[in-house]
Design a protein around this nucleic acid. Structure first.
Lengths: 234, 234
DNA sequence: CGGAGCGTTGATAGAAGTCAATTGACGTGG
DNA sequence: CCACGTCAATTGACTTCTATCAACGCTCCG
């Protein structure tokens, strides 16, 4: 379930510990905030199902999304060591999350170095994704950016077994995409239209179908290396 | 020297360990690569003096910078747990770095939980900075983006004692700024001109002088909270 | 002296934003 | 059951921001 377990082997004991840390499941509605900027939090959230996003509100009221999360991701593992949240987290769709108390996580850093490194790794992959977003935002026009996001989400969902035949559930609104890509909704709409017209994707009823992975990947200059999907000792 | 020590207290033993980990100093010329994309590395680099940057080269040859580093920063602490570098690192100016062997760092994660958390924290702050760059890239026009970068660098340099009277050494080229902000050099030039004309900054001979911090901060919507500068137990 | 690199400026082209309007899906209340 | 409101998707017209192309000056240095 955790993306952690795809990048290194966990011992039976470690698996048991991780499972034992999970608090009770909580249901989050779409558009409901899970964490608010400025809070000091006492638990980290693991996303079980649904899409969630980190975002900030700018002074003109615009929402800028800095990360989109898929099941298996920690939404705010970084809150374990950072003093206050520098962003909010919201459900983009209805979500299920479990809370992992910071006390337990901190205890784990004292007693289980290997698990600690894997949790650390999880935040490092977050950071690698952030860097890639910076690169695509700065270096690509809207079409490349959108194509890259689709490739990335496809790959990340694939890791947790949520794709089949180049298709995945993708019920986000064009508004969400606009806020993530930093472009207007009108422009998102036109950019999607281009991808459709070029026969690269199909997207309707909350279902995304990639029709031509190779060309989409090329437009996006997508290379999954930054997601560090090797399963190796860490 | 490390930015680490500004965010929590280190015991005498911890300070000694950290000092003991430093390998020998290396000098890097401006525009010289320190780490190349795709490498597996065996040491992490700590920047002692100068400016460095993480970057990727896009298929059209453009360079997109995803992070700018100041003295006291680790350039690639994440390489400890990530398999291969997903970006390169270069000196933007002549730099001094010290290498910290991964063997030592990994050993430390086995024996010193508190120091481990502080190293982890260092990468979390990197990530927080990445998020802020995503927000400013997506949400601001060029002037706000540039203003934000100046505010950020001022604040980060202040942490390590490298500013005085709102001035700091800033010998980057406009080309470097263009690659960091994802805009053209011509537009960088015009944007700087605006900031100068508005009496916000002065920048000549590699020296940046902030003339009106309050207005610059306002244009940039800069709030240092994301840099998490509190000195608290972690 | 002459070239290379950087900074600066003007003119023009292209990308993306804003404003406005229309459509369709959906849910609520009468 | 239908009227109505809301929200998202879509499209057109126009504006603004940013890129590109081109030219020129400056400084540094071989």
């Amino acid at each position: 379930m955790l993306s952690l377990e795809r990048r290194d082997r966990l011992s039976a004991e470690e698996q048991a510990i991780v499972r034992g840390m999970m608090g009770k499941m909580r249901n989050i509605a779409a558009k409901q905030d899970i964490i608010r900027e400025g809070e000091r939090v006492t638990d980290s959230c693991l996303l079980i199902s649904g899409y969630a996003a980190r975002y900030n509100i700018l002074s003109d009221g615009a929402r800028q999304i800095s990360a989109i999360h898929v099941p298996g991701d920690f939404l705010d593992l970084h809150s374990l060591l950072l003093g206050r949240m520098d962003h909010s987290v919201t459900g983009l769709t209805p979500c299920e999350i479990v809370l992992v108390p910071h006390d337990l996580l901190r205890g784990l850093t004292e007693t289980h170095p290997h698990l600690t490194r894997l949790f650390w790794l999880s935040t490092l992959i977050d950071a690698a994704i952030h860097r890639r977003w910076i690169v695509t935002a700065g270096g690509f026009p809207a079409q490349g950016q959108l194509a890259h996001l689709i490739c990335e989400l496809y790959t990340r969902l694939n890791v947790v077994g949520l794709v089949s035949d180049y298709a995945f559930h993708f019920p986000l609104s064009q508004i969400d995409l606009a806020d993530a890509l930093g472009i207007s909704t009108v422009h998102v709409n036109r950019t999607i239209k281009e991808l459709r017209t070029q026969g690269l994707i199909q997207w309707q009823g909350g279902q995304m179908q990639i029709l031509d992975w190779d060309r989409l990947r090329e437009i996006a200059q997508f290379d999954a290396a930054y997601l560090d999907l090797e399963c190796i000792p860490r």
